[in-house]
Amino acid sequence: MSLTAALNTLTKISCVAIIGKMNNPMFIKNYSNEVDELKFHYLANISCDLIEAKINQTKYNDSYLGLLYIMEDLAVYGYLTNTKMKIIIILTISINPVKDMEMKQIFKKVHGVYSNLISNPFYDPDSRNTITSTSFIKGVDKIVNTSFQNDVSYS
């Protein structure tokens, strides 16, 4: 297997999305080169439905909501903060299974970056504008780039 082919089959984060309380998009960033960003917007949008269904159906006692659904080779994971902010991570999945613990860690990190953002007294978390803070975007970029590094090392 050539290296590029191997890389293509690796699990990687394709998109990170933050959805506000009113199910309004706060932040959607596409990390994939192959998929059109519009698709991620749609996926993030329907994730709101699934997250709502998930909260209603089961007693959830964890912010991490697990795998929401799979569409083609994209797996959508959800996370709900105490302030009802939804964090959605879309993975391009490979053969290697993704461990829940691993996902949870990634979500925690993103949540941390978000917490830093809203700690800024000048940031209005209720505004319906999208997040433009550079430190937030950098933080998320770093998380995305450092996740699933183990896969690379052993392939």
């Binding site: 749609y42 949008n45 329907i46 709101c48 439905d49 699934l50 709502e52 269904a53 209603n56």
Partner: peptide
């Protein structure tokens, strides 16, 4: 169908309509 679900999944409904 998504409109007949409980709770309604209007976003999925919209998505599939699209």
């Amino acid at each position: 169908c998504y409109l007949k679900l409980n709770p309604k999944m209007i976003r999925k409904y919209a998505f599939h309509l699209i």
